[in-house]
């Protein structure tokens, strides 16, 4: 593995077993600051499980996960969110009872200072904080072309748009590491190109490091500096998109013969 300078995420020897099955097997890689790193591999390779280990939904059975140099292996999901980890979900993890704007605002949960008592008493500073957050949410929604649907119920939106609401919610956390689980899933080719443009834009604008799971190989090669290829829980290749996509192991396990 090539050394990554100033890593935002370090995964060191991570293994995960669930019910006797080995899901992840001694996985190691890192995501550098400002980098877009993609995880690719066939279904069942363990990509989403790795996401769950990084965001704290699963506890790895071995290994170490660090965020910006701090070991977070033992931390709960909400504690990792405070350390700057934000994610989207493969099959959507939005809050259906909330509007698009409220979903986005929910992403900023850890950044708000108002707690029970100031909230109940409607303390002026707590209300000001809420108003400021609402304005900020509207800016982020506009940046993702969601301004027009801010007051809509999320469930009324098409799948691809809901995935973008998830990105907006994750951005509202002002994360150091943004994890996107199949953001291009269900989009047309034109929409995929647009999404790549949007993701590049938000990375620069919000100074993000991004870990990406995606099957759309054009999206991956166009966006990422670093690709990790997984198969049945193991890492079978890693490197630049160009190097990885021509690697015979990767072609055999995942990409198939070139057309």
């Amino acid at each position: 593995m090539d050394p990554v300078m100033d890593p935002v995420l370090e995964v060191q020897g991570v293994s995960l077993s669930l019910g006797g099955l080995t899901i992840l097997d001694d996985l190691s890689f890192a995501v550098g600051r400002g980098e877009v790193c993609a995880l690719i591999g066939p279904n069942g390779a363990g990509k989403t499980s790795l996401f769950n280990c990084v965001s704290g939904v699963y506890r790895p059975s071995a290994g170490r996960i660090s965020i910006a140099g701090h070991d977070v292996t033992g931390l709960k999901p909400h504690e990792r969110a405070r350390r700057g980890v934000a994610r989207t979900f493969q099959n959507l993890g939005l809050f259906p009872s909330l509007s698009v704007r409220a979903n986005a605002m929910a992403g900023a949960h850890t950044r708000l200072h108002a707690r029970l008592l100031p909230e109940m008493l409607a303390a002026p500073w707590a209300r000001a904080e809420e108003r400021a957050l609402q304005e900020e949410a509207d800016l982020v929604l506009d940046a993702l072309d969601l301004g027009a649907v801010a007051d809509t119920a999320v469930t009324a939106l098409p799948f691809g748009t809901q995935k973008r609401v998830e990105i907006a919610r994750a951005l509202m956390a002002r994360p150091a590491l943004l994890m996107l689980d199949e953001p291009a899933n269900g989009l047309s080719d034109g929409e995929v190109d647009e999404l790549a443009h949007v993701v590049r834009g938000i990375r620069d604008r919000y100074d993000l490091s991004i870990l990406l799971v995606e099957h759309h190989i054009g999206f991956v090669t166009g966006l990422s500096q670093h690709v990790v290829v997984m198969d049945v829980g193991r890492q079978i290749a890693a490197g630049t998109p160009a190097a990885v996509t021509t690697d015979p192991n990767v072609v055999r396990a995942y990409l198939g013969d070139p057309l």
Binding site: H78, R80, A173
Partner: peptide
């Protein structure tokens, strides 16, 4: 799960 990953304890 999604609430927890947004930082809700």
């Amino acid at each position: 799960v999604a609430a927890a990953t947004q930082g809700v304890d």
